[in-house]
Design a protein around this nucleic acid. Structure first.
Length: 558
RNA sequence: CGGGGCGUAGCGCAGCUUGGUAGCGCGCACGGUUCGGGACCGUGAAGUCGGAGGUUCAAAUCCUCUCGCCCCGACCA
């Protein structure tokens, strides 16, 4: 492709509302433009990248026997009502009515529709297993779209669904998908990891997420270098560091106006870890007092798994329910439901005395209060691994894919049954598996850039090579560039030639911004000796080679 | 949904406090000089100042409402 004929609107300055590096660079380099919040246009370069990523995904899906199909984006409400998700999912689902006043929605995922298809077409164990997939647009009315194409309201997703007669079959398809995903991300040149994750509203059993480390990510994972334990912090288990045992008598201490753990900690000259943080929340079934060690944070999702959805209590509610103002509350003597983090099982602690301006020192679980025990603290760096006991670290990541074992969550309500060898009717056992190609692209940019722009991994770069004839008024330069342009293309490479009548500096700047991995620089002086320069975008190192050797040299690059 | 910020030419911004003919840089068009890391000179086109209402002789500027976008949080198949 000739630069003069492809639309690449590069910008010298980034639009002020872009913050994430990938967002800034993709705007500046002319890959994408924003239509509205969470809605993006892919320009020619951006779409080429997406096409390459999708091609890799499709190859690997086909390789595990998955079959590509295509489903509508517009769905009748009825099917979603049958699984209950029509009611469970809130504002995130785009809903509308057709001219006949029938309720419809825009597809945010396709478990329902895939299962509907299976329910009509699959009758026998002989029809199983199946893997169906599509690369198709999803719509979700996100509460807060952000970071350019990382979180949008409309996005392309590769979603696949497995259908099996047995749990063993599901396990095999789950494993096949995990392997395929590894290959996909490797081929896309990403640093990534697979971690345990919370199935959330997808339901079903096991699930894993594929995560690309990046400060731009929205998730955090806890990792153990020693044994390989890795999990989203939403469910990561960890053991907070043990405390030196205190041999306190149970005793009230006067703590005037000292309310927060930090204030009392400073006042009593005791580390926060010797305190019990008591937080009152209001769940659907009533108030719950949640307890964690003073140096820990409660993880809302972990707590929600125990007590259901909940909200923090307001100050007036604390006074009314616990009989004491916030700041001096504690578990001892309270009648409300107590849910405590397991790290509090042992040891002697300080908590609020349920009496204004007093705290209680020397309280022990089991003797002074009896809570339900759960892991409700947020795993943090330095905590110990529950599997091997060595220190965990925590990393910020971009979620680039996930895999779920669904079991019969969708097949049962949608009556997707098959007859087994014995003529018994059974629900199909399902899995679902998603990849966001735009997130792969964004993660690739987040992980591969420098002060001058993007440095694409070779496999997903919009072009393989960029030719830079520097002086377009020099006939010899043009002749050489045209020759190489034809030759490189004939050798199977995708070539961008900057044939614009621009100064060298402009071409260099744009080439670095756009980030094509290999640059072939055709300058007048080198040409007099029959040489051109081949430059690596990542290292900025270049070698001079004879014009005749360029094609072979470029093709031999890793 | 809660908190914060911002809407002035394609992009980046100034002007608003203290109301009085809408500006700067980049980009864009044309002419000339230049030509290996975002050139220079000259000429020029381009803006309902997000929108509506109000105050005023007069509103980008003051007031009210509203829409949009970004960030933090909540939420997130």
């Amino acid at each position: 492709m000739r630069f003069s004929r492809i639309f690449i609107p590069t910008l010298r300055e980034a639009p002020a509302d872009a913050e994430a590096i990938s967002h800034i660079l993709m705007l500046r380099a002319g890959y994408v433009r924003q239509l509205a919040s969470g809605l993006y246009i892919y320009l020619p370069l951006g779409w080429k990248v997406m096409t390459k990523i999708n091609a890799i995904i499709k190859e690997e899906m086909d390789a595990i026997g998955a079959q590509e199909i295509s489903m509508p984006v517009l769905h009748p409400a009825e099917i979603w009502q049958q699984t209950g998700r029509w009611y469970e999912i809130g504002d995130e689902m785009f809903r509308l009515k057709d001219r006949g006043d029938r309720e419809m929605c825009l597809g945010m995922t396709h478990e329902e529709i895939m299962t509907w298809l299976a329910s009509r077409e699959i009758r026998s164990y002989r029809d199983l297993p199946q893997i169906w997939y599509q690369v198709q647009t999803k719509l979700r009315d996100e509460a807060r779209p952000k970071s350019g194409i990382l979180r949008t309201r409309e996005f392309i997703m590769k979603d696949s669904y497995s259908f099996d007669a047995s749990e063993e079959g599901l396990a095999e398809n789950y494993r096949l998908h995990a392997n395929a995903y590894h290959r996909i991300y490797e081929r896309c040149g990403l640093r990534f990891m697979m971690v345990e994750s919370d199935p959330g509203m997808m339901g079903g059993g096991m699930s894993h997420e594929f995560m690309a480390p990046s400060p731009a990510g929205e998730d955090e994972v806890a990792l153990c270098d020693k044994c390989g334990y890795s999990a989203n912090v939403e469910l990561a288990l960890s053991i907070p560091l043990k405390l030196e045992e205190k041999d306190w008598e149970r005793q009230e201490v006067h703590t005037p106006e000292k309310r927060t753990v930090q204030e009392v900690s400073n006042f009593l000259k005791l580390p926060p870890s010797y305190f019990i943080k008591s937080i009152l929340v209001i769940a659907e079934k009533g108030p719950v007092l949640a307890l964690v060690r003073g140096d820990q944070e409660i993880h809302e999702k972990k707590l929600a798994k125990v007590i259901g959805s909940h909200r923090p209590a307001q100050k007036a509610e604390v006074k009314e329910i616990l009989g004491v103002e916030a700041g001096f509350i504690g578990p001892v003597g309270q009648k409300v439901r107590l849910v405590a983090d397991e790290s509090l099982k042992e040891g002697s602690y300080v908590s609020g005395a349920n009496k204004p301006h007093y705290h209680l020192r020397g309280i022990r679980a089991g003797r002074d209060f009896t809570p339900e025990w759960h892991d409700i603290h947020t795993a943090k760096a330095g905590d110990l691994c529950v599997k091997c006991g060595s220190a965990l670290h925590v990393e910020r990541v971009i979620e680039i894919g996930n895999i779920f074992k669904l079991g019969t969550k969708y097949s049962t309500p949608l009556k997707a049954f098959f007859l087994d060898e014995n003529g018994q009717e059974k629900p199909i056992i399902m899995g679902s598996y998603g990849i966001g190609p735009a997130r792969i692209a964004a993660a690739a940019v987040e992980q591969n850039n420098d002060k001058d722009g993007i440095v694409w991994p070779k496999s997903i770069a919009p072009f393989d090579v960029e030719l830079l004839p520097l002086n377009m008024s020099d006939p010899k330069t043009i002749e050489t560039a045209e020759g190489l342009y034809t030759g490189l293309r004939e050798s199977g490479l995708d070539v961008l030639m900057d044939d614009r009548n621009e100064r060298a500096g402009v071409k260099f700047k744009d080439a670095d911004l756009i980030g094509i991995p290999v640059q072939v620089i055709i300058g007048e002086k080198n040409l007099k000796e029959g040489l051109v320069e081949i430059k690596d975008r990542r290292t900025k190192e270049s070698v001079k080679v004879k014009v005749d050797d360029v094609i072979e040299k470029v093709r031999s690059l890793p």
